[in-house]
Design a protein around this nucleic acid. Structure first.
Length: 137
DNA sequence: GCCAACGTTGGC
DNA sequence: GCCAACGTTGGC
């Protein structure tokens, strides 16, 4: 089982919409590094759902339910999507500001390369984020 | 709204 | 194949 972080601007596709629809295909990735990460996802992998620009916080979890296939929104063979399903909404969203205060999370791709829209997450990092999401502020 | 960081494009 | 110029993303 692998862990990931996927980013979306709330204006484009907020987590609340995933909750409402229960499942969606993750389209719009137009970056090779991000594409490669999509390709490496397997069914059952968990993704931290991050709101960029507005919010700047991890708001919940999504689960990979279909592995990479041709992006239906383009004919360009280069691009892929995966299907993800709503998994869990965090009781307490974990903000970027909080993450930056945690020493063991300084190596997260989110901190190091904030522009990458689909990124791998270490198991320990994933665990730390979950713990933060459960602790009261 | 600004700008740093990163990725892509295209001239040479 | 190098690198300058440009475009985009996203934190601040």
């Amino acid at each position: 089982m692998k862990y990931w972080l996927i980013k979306s601007e709330p204006e484009t596709y907020p987590f609340s919409k995933l909750k409402e629809e229960n499942q969606t295909f993750w389209d719009g990735v137009r970056n090779y590094q991000a594409r490669n990460n999509l390709r490496d996802m397997t069914i059952g992998d968990l993704c931290l759902f991050y709101h960029s620009n507005e919010g700047k916080e991890i708001v919940g979890l999504a689960k990979v339910v279909r592995e990479a296939y041709q992006d239906p929104t383009t004919d360009d063979q280069a691009w892929l999507v995966v299907d993800v399903a709503f998994e869990k909404e965090f009781k307490n969203p974990v903000s970027l500001v909080e993450i930056k205060k945690v020493p063991e999370l300084q190596n997260m791709v989110l901190v190091k390369n904030s522009r990458l829209s689909v990124q791998p997450v270490m198991e320990e990092e994933f665990g730390s984020i979950l713990r933060l999401s459960e602790s009261e502020k």
